[in-house]
């Protein structure tokens, strides 16, 4: 039981990274960035590719993350900048276009098979009581928590954070008050892309496989986590991610893998009906889509 809870939290922590990445984008820029599952995948696949080319794993991971920063900037250039004044559903289409683009570029580069990711850490598992904690998984859980706490600290306490929150409130007024939107908005895209990509790298290290389509399943769960937590709310995204991870692992444990989707999406549906604005969202607030 407790073991399953731990496994669920580990899986959930990956969802948390993707969900926080999405929630940053929608909370600050009011932009549901569907290319994020693609950036997640790029993080994992590019790391694999670099390791295969003979680079040491830290170097491989850093190169992949830098590449994702560039990709995130390209997405910003072709989606967010064009959306001003149009219906808010629209950039959703072009960011989905980028998801398809990234996936198929990687398909050309590495093929559609699941690629085995090398095990870079020797097996170091911790046993606490009867619980088995995988080393890499533990590191990724801690890393996710640290990253998310850091982001929320930056948003709350620093000068940058204040500027970002002003943009979230009203981009036009923020611009009038002298905030350099052209500088801050790409930074938000990079931060959100990096979170997703780190999620992808951690996923690769934990589950030891990558493929061009690895972002989809995780991305959908991440989006669900973000929405069920209440959009734009970082703590909501964390709660949502962990909730989905734990629900998924428990339903596999108790009911078998045939019923995972029914249970996970059933729980989401019921939660949404009970709390139409998400767990931590305000109901009366006008929706942001």
């Amino acid at each position: 039981m407790a073991q399953q809870l731990v496994n669920g939290l580990m899986l959930g922590s990956i969802y948390v990274l993707v969900a926080v990445s999405l929630t940053l984008s929608i909370g600050i820029l009011n932009f549901l960035n569907f290319s994020i599952p693609g950036l997640f995948m790029l993080g994992g696949v590019l790391t694999w590719l670099m390791i295969k080319l003979g680079f040491a794993w830290p170097l491989a991971a850093i190169t992949a993350l830098l590449a994702v920063c560039v990709a995130a900037l390209v997405v910003e250039r072709f989606t967010y900048r064009w959306m001003k004044g149009s219906d808010p559903e629209v950039p959703l289409v072009s960011s989905l276009g980028f998801l398809i683009l990234f996936e198929n570029l990687m398909l050309v580069a590495v093929g559609s098979d699941q690629q085995a990711f090398p095990q870079v850490f020797a097996d170091f598992n911790l046993r606490i009581g009867g619980l088995l904690l995988g080393g890499p998984q533990l590191i990724s859980l801690v890393l996710s928590i640290v990253l998310v706490v850091m982001i929320s600290w930056v948003l709350r306490k620093t000068r940058y954070g204040r500027q970002v929150r002003a943009i979230a409130e009203d981009p036009e007024t923020a611009g009038i008050l002298g905030i350099d939107l052209q500088r801050i908005v790409p930074l938000v895209f990079i931060a959100s892309g990096l979170l997703a990509a780190i999620g992808g790298v951690l996923f690769a290290f934990n589950y030891l496989q990558v493929s061009p389509f690895m972002g989809e399943e995780v991305g959908l769960k991440g989006i669900s986590a973000m929405i069920v937590g209440g959009m734009g709310n970082i703590w909501g995204a964390i709660a949502g991610g962990l909730l989905i991870g734990v629900t998924e692992v428990f339903s596999i444990y108790f009911l078998g893998s045939d019923f995972v989707d029914i249970v996970v999406y059933g729980v989401l549906l019921v939660l949404l009906i009970l709390r139409p604005g998400g767990l931590f969202g305000r109901v009366e607030q006008r929706e942001k889509l």
Binding site: I26, I227, Y265, L269, G277
Partner: peptide
């Protein structure tokens, strides 16, 4: 639910 929440509800 409304907006994106409705989208997730129908998706679920």
């Amino acid at each position: 639910t409304h907006g994106i929440y409705l989208a997730l509800a129908t998706f679920s």
